[in-house]
């Protein structure tokens, strides 16, 4: 029981990660693929945030009470990773816009069919 409830965060992380990964692989629509990728990355953010939490820990602000603090470093790291994720999403969406212009479709199958045609010329 403890391995289910006690590690609740981590089960969520694994669930989200696998969902995102599955969407990236199984979906043919490029926008949906990018959404899957976002989910996949978000699960890792949760992983980092969970590991920084200390039981009963407070925010790391020094005050009069002698408190236990949570580890702020993973949170800061993940702030950077979120920025990276946003940048990836932006580049990905910009590419999709250009792909839509060039191919007239954002479906993987259509694009691949066009590409195979061009390859065999």
């Amino acid at each position: 029981m403890n391995s289910i409830l006690g590690l609740f965060n981590y089960w969520i992380v694994i669930f989200l990660m696998m969902t995102g990964f599955y969407v990236v692989i199984a979906q043919g629509n490029l926008v949906k693929k990018l959404v899957g990728l976002g989910l996949f990355q978000a699960s890792v953010f949760l992983l980092y945030i969970s590991m920084g939490k200390v039981e009963g820990g407070h925010a790391p602000i020094i005050d009069a009470f002698n408190r236990v603090y949570s580890n702020p470093l993973p949170h800061v790291l993940i702030l950077t990773a979120i920025v990276v994720g946003v940048a990836t999403l932006a580049v990905g969406l910009a590419l999709i816009v250009r792909i839509q212009d060039a191919y007239g479709s954002v479906e993987e199958d259509d694009i691949q069919a066009h590409d195979n045609e061009a390859d065999s010329d």
Partner: peptide
């Protein structure tokens, strides 16, 4: 070539993973 766009997108997917 427009294939560069799709190649780049595929690289983005696999590179990010």
């Amino acid at each position: 070539d427009r294939r560069a766009l799709y190649a780049s997108f595929r690289y983005l997917m696999m590179g990010t993973i």
